[in-house]
Simulated scan of single mutants.
Amino acid sequence: MANHYRYIIFYKPYGVLSQFTQETPKHRTLKDYIQVQDVYPVGRLDWDSEGLLLLTNDGQLQHRLAHPRFGHERTYWVQVERIPDVDAINQLQTGVEIQNYRTQPAQVKLLLEAPPLPERNPPIRFRKNIPTAWLEMTLTEGKNRQVRRMTAAVGFPTLRLVRVSIAHLHLDGLQLGEWRDLMSAELEFLDKLPKKTKNLLRR
C-alpha cells in the first residue's frame, strides 16, 4: 500500500459523532480526539454507539469495506433489556423484518457474563426489576441502526452497543478514546481484500 495513505483505528466513546464537523454543541466529534488531516471514517458508528471505527484517506479501501457486496463481518457486543430466549436468538440468526427489509443471517450468541468493557458515560438507564443480558452479534451488512432495530423487533431493546471488530481488525489494547495506526500485518490483510470497485462506485 502506498506510503502516503493513513489507516487509523479508533475506540469511539459514547456521544461522539463519526465525523469531524460539529452539528450541535451537544455532541463531540472526531476532531476532539484525532488530529490527523484528511482521514475519514469507513462506514459509520452512531453517536450513541461505541467501539471500533476505521479511518483512512484511501478512497478505494473505503469503497471495498463499506459496499454491501463484499459482506465484511462486523462484530458487536450488545446489552439488551431482559434475557433473550432461544426463539429470539434463532430469529436474530435467521433474519428479522425491519422497515420492510429482511436482515441477512447473522451469528448471534448469548454471553454468559458481561464483556470486559469500561463503564459508559453516562451509564445506561438501570431498572431494578428488569434484568439485562449481553449478546455477541456478527453481521455482514450495516443498515442504518440495524442492530438496535433487530433486537427491538424480537422484543429485547438495545441499551448499549459496542462494535468490537471489523473483518480482522479488533479493539485489543486500545483504551476508550484512543487511536493508533494499523500495524503492518493488519495492512497486509487489508491489501488482500477484493478490489473490483470500478462498477461499485455507481451507488
Results as ranks from 00 to 15, higher is better:
residue 59 G to D: 02
residue 61 L to V: 03
residue 61 L to E: 03
residue 62 Q to R: 04
residue 62 Q to I: 14
residue 62 Q to H: 10
residue 63 H to N: 13
residue 63 H to M: 07
residue 64 R to V: 14
residue 66 A to M: 06
residue 67 H to D: 09
residue 68 P to H: 10
residue 71 G to Y: 00
residue 72 H to M: 00
residue 73 E to T: 12
residue 74 R to P: 05
residue 75 T to G: 05
residue 75 T to K: 10
residue 75 T to M: 06
residue 75 T to F: 02
residue 76 Y to T: 09
residue 77 W to C: 04
residue 77 W to Y: 14
residue 78 V to E: 08
residue 78 V to A: 10
residue 79 Q to M: 15
residue 81 E to T: 15
residue 83 I to V: 15
residue 85 D to H: 07
residue 86 V to D: 04
residue 88 A to L: 03
residue 90 N to F: 01
residue 92 L to D: 01
residue 93 Q to D: 01
residue 93 Q to C: 12
residue 94 T to Q: 08
residue 95 G to V: 04
residue 96 V to W: 00
residue 98 I to V: 15
residue 99 Q to I: 15
residue 99 Q to G: 06
residue 102 R to A: 10
residue 102 R to G: 04
residue 104 Q to W: 07
residue 105 P to R: 03
residue 105 P to T: 11
residue 106 A to T: 10
residue 106 A to I: 01
residue 106 A to V: 09
residue 107 Q to D: 10
residue 107 Q to K: 13
residue 108 V to F: 00
residue 109 K to Y: 05
residue 109 K to W: 00
residue 110 L to R: 05
residue 110 L to A: 06
residue 110 L to D: 08
residue 112 L to G: 15
residue 112 L to E: 14
residue 113 E to L: 09
residue 114 A to P: 08
residue 115 P to A: 10
residue 116 P to Q: 14
residue 117 L to C: 12
residue 118 P to K: 09
residue 118 P to Q: 08
residue 119 E to R: 12
residue 120 R to V: 10
residue 125 R to L: 13
residue 125 R to K: 14
residue 127 R to C: 10
residue 127 R to F: 13
residue 127 R to L: 09
residue 132 T to A: 07
residue 134 W to C: 08
residue 134 W to N: 03
residue 135 L to N: 06
residue 137 M to K: 02
residue 138 T to V: 10
residue 139 L to M: 08
residue 139 L to Q: 01
residue 140 T to V: 11
residue 140 T to Q: 11
residue 140 T to N: 11
residue 142 G to P: 03
residue 142 G to R: 00
residue 143 K to C: 02
residue 143 K to G: 12
residue 143 K to R: 15
residue 143 K to D: 02
residue 143 K to F: 08
residue 144 N to I: 06
residue 145 R to N: 13
residue 147 V to E: 02
residue 147 V to K: 05
residue 147 V to Y: 01
residue 147 V to G: 02
residue 148 R to M: 11
residue 148 R to I: 13
residue 149 R to K: 14
residue 151 T to D: 01
residue 151 T to W: 05
residue 155 G to N: 08
residue 156 F to S: 00
residue 156 F to Y: 14
residue 157 P to T: 13
residue 158 T to W: 01
residue 159 L to P: 00
residue 159 L to H: 03
residue 160 R to C: 13
residue 160 R to K: 11
residue 163 R to P: 07
residue 163 R to A: 11
residue 164 V to T: 15
residue 167 A to D: 12
residue 167 A to G: 12
residue 168 H to F: 01
residue 170 H to D: 12
residue 170 H to F: 05
residue 172 D to E: 11
residue 175 Q to L: 07
residue 175 Q to N: 14
residue 176 L to T: 15
residue 177 G to K: 06
residue 178 E to V: 04
residue 179 W to K: 03
residue 182 L to G: 09
residue 182 L to T: 03
residue 183 M to V: 14
residue 184 S to P: 07
residue 185 A to I: 09
